[in-house]
Amino acid sequence: MKTLLGKSYPFFIFFFLLLVFFIADVSYGSVYIPLDEVFNILLKKNTEKKSWEIIVWQFRLPKATTALLAGAGLSVSGLLMQTLFRNPLADAYILGVSSGASLGVALLILAGVGFASFAGQWAIAVSAVVGAASIMALVLFIATQVRQLVSLLIIGLMLGNGVGALIVILQSFSNKEELQRFANWTYGSLGGVDWEKMLILAPLVLVGLFSSIFLYKPLNSLLLGDNYALSMGLNIHKIRIQVILLTSLITGCITAFCGIIGFVGIAVPHICRYLLDTSEHKRLLPACAFLGAILMLACDMLCQLPYSPHVLPINAITALVGVPVVVWVILRRR
């Protein structure tokens, strides 16, 4: 019993911090709302101003929920990729899925192709989903043809570079307004998801997160090498496909609705390994989900300048947090 409580103790702390940062993110913004009024709004009690209810329910609560889902999803995806490739600097975007989402958005915004004519506010999200799904299907097909993970890694990087080249070509034929709109999407934003879009984002990300938990035993075996995994009777090819599929699903969905958010998938798994002092995926997977969500909520608050309508790009804040962690990892492994 004492051992069980000892192992569960960090997760009680993570859960408490998650609640604190979630409430803080909902409370913090350009419009000051007292904390007691925030609780009244969340509990659907009478409040001093009706406008505060609109701000909390229609803007801040969806944004904080998006931050929670994006942080958890990208962190778990990063852990899956680092384990699959046995590479400490791998992350969720290494297979080019985010590049596919970027190409879909680029075709819509820069070339005027896509779903803008009938999708309305869903145009960018739908185009990003189609682009990410296309690259995901291509990567899955390639994964069935190659046996070496290094080959798959190189092909994923080449796909990302090739798609990036196509985007640069599209940008060279675009006007300033189109370039600015596309650039705004690439910076990443958590504020573009309303409750209608949340009905798609939340189930897909949650399905991916819960499904990854059932892979903890194969992931532990992969850490010890392919030969060990084979000796344990695991179908390495099947596990590889499942990991790629889950990572692509989570990453593609988050990128479609939030844009590209870097460094979270690299940094959080290393922080969790350091804090828990373990490589056991049964503990690392939920720890990455908790800590990734906490980190993204904190970054979302840092994006919001106090008492100002201006919001900094989320990608810039996550980079400032993630870069020191990546440098630390490299120095530790020298």
Rank of each mutant, 00 (worst) to 15 (best):
L166C: 12
V193D: 02
Q304G: 06
T83S: 12
F115Q: 09
L201I: 13
V150Y: 11
L230A: 13
R240H: 10
T83Q: 06
P306C: 11
A116S: 14
S221G: 11
W328C: 10
P203G: 09
V327N: 02
F115N: 02
I271K: 00
V76F: 05
N235Q: 12
A67G: 15
Q304D: 03
V207N: 01
Q148H: 12
P62K: 02
G162N: 10
I330H: 09
V130N: 01
V168E: 12
A119P: 04
D36S: 13
A128R: 00
A70Y: 01
R283E: 11
S127H: 01
M81A: 07
I23R: 01
L74H: 06
S189G: 05
L295Y: 07
S174L: 06
D25I: 05
S151D: 08
S127N: 10
K44Q: 14
F14T: 08
V97P: 01
V31A: 10
S51M: 14
S211F: 10
Q171W: 04
L179G: 01
Y307S: 12
F182T: 04
P313L: 11
S8C: 05
L204H: 07
P269M: 05
A92P: 06
K217C: 08
P218C: 10
I154D: 07
L107T: 09
H310S: 07
F85G: 01
F11D: 00
Y216N: 04
G188E: 07
V76W: 01
L190Q: 03
V193P: 00
F59M: 13
L103M: 14
L305A: 04
K217G: 06
S279W: 02
V325I: 15
V326K: 04
F115E: 07
I135V: 15
V150T: 14
S308V: 08
V329A: 05
L305C: 03
L80W: 00
D36E: 14
V31M: 10
V105F: 00
F12L: 15
R332S: 12
A123E: 08
R181V: 04
V38I: 15
R181I: 08
H270R: 06
P218W: 04
G252P: 04
E280V: 06
I241K: 05
Y307V: 06
K282V: 11
L209A: 03
V150R: 09
P306F: 11
I213M: 13
V311F: 00
L190S: 03
P313C: 09
L179Q: 06
L206I: 15
A293T: 08
L297E: 03
K63Q: 14
L201W: 09
V130L: 14
N40Y: 11
I330V: 15
C253V: 15
L320K: 09
G104S: 11
V327T: 13
L179C: 01
A101H: 02
D91R: 02
G6K: 12
S221A: 15
I236G: 02
V323N: 03
L245F: 15
W57M: 15
D36G: 10
E48H: 12
V129P: 00
S8T: 13
V113P: 02
S151C: 04
R147N: 13
S77I: 08
R334H: 15
D277L: 05
S211T: 13
L159V: 15
L61N: 08
A256K: 00
C288P: 00
A101Y: 01
L18C: 09
A64E: 08
N40A: 14
L215W: 07
